[in-house]
Computed example of a mutant assay.
Amino acid sequence: MPVSRRKYNALAADYERIREQRDEAQRTVRAMQTATRTAAGQFTAADDTLNRVRLARLADAIRYTRRIARLVRIVARLRGEVAAADRRAARVQAAYDNAVGLDNPSLDHGATWQSRREDKPRTAVAS
């Protein structure tokens, strides 16, 4: 079946137009694939960075927890040592008071006399 020249030229033009659309679609697909690969790479890198940051924070938290536990133990030991030193100082003070006679009950009776004695120096009151 013979085809007229006009019909042939119309079919050839349609063929060329469809071929250009196909080529344009292929270029668009390649560009989208490239953009997708680039975005996937960026998201992967960001996810890796985020995971590293999370792991680093977790490791820091574990280290800080260990440090805090160690410091709590040290503070407890030091508080015990301070309490023991206070007890020793109190015993030494009591022994000194006994040695010089400061624990004599008659001294307690004189304490009230000291506050109301007549020869106590008075401060001048400004009028």
Rank of each mutant, 00 (worst) to 15 (best):
R17N: 15
R17P: 02
R17V: 01
R17D: 15
R17F: 07
I18F: 01
I18G: 03
I18V: 14
R19Q: 12
R19A: 15
E20N: 04
E20C: 00
E20T: 07
E20Y: 04
Q21L: 08
Q21C: 02
Q21V: 02
R22T: 07
D23R: 13
D23G: 08
D23M: 10
E24Y: 02
E24L: 11
E24K: 13
A25Y: 00
A25L: 11
Q26Y: 09
Q26S: 15
R27K: 10
R27T: 02
R27V: 00
T28N: 07
T28E: 11
V29E: 15
V29Y: 13
A31L: 14
A31Q: 15
M32I: 05
Q33T: 03
T34H: 05
A35R: 11
T36I: 02
T36E: 11
R37G: 01
T38P: 01
T38V: 10
T38I: 03
T38C: 02
A39W: 02
A39C: 03
A39I: 06
A39R: 13
A40Q: 13
A40T: 05
Q42N: 13
A46E: 15
A46K: 04
A46T: 05
D47M: 01
T49H: 11
L50K: 06
L50W: 04
L50C: 08
N51S: 13
R52F: 04
V53G: 00
V53A: 05
R54W: 04
R54K: 14
L55F: 03
L55N: 15
L55I: 05
A56M: 06
R57T: 08
R57I: 09
L58C: 04
A59R: 09
A59K: 01
D60W: 09
A61P: 02
A61S: 10
A61I: 01
A61T: 01
I62S: 11
I62E: 15
I62L: 15
I62K: 14
R63N: 12
R63M: 07
Y64K: 11
T65D: 13
T65N: 14
T65Q: 06
T65V: 01
R66N: 14
R67I: 12
I68C: 07
I68K: 08
A69Q: 08
A69P: 03
A69N: 13
A69S: 12
R70L: 06
R70D: 13
L71S: 06
L71Y: 03
L71F: 11
V72P: 01
V72Y: 04
R73Q: 11
R73P: 02
I74P: 09
I74V: 14
A76C: 06
A76D: 15
L78H: 05
L78I: 07
L78P: 00
R79A: 14
R79H: 07
G80A: 10
G80N: 03
E81D: 14
E81I: 04
E81S: 06
E81Y: 03
E81T: 02
E81W: 05
V82I: 14
V82M: 03
V82Q: 05
V82G: 03
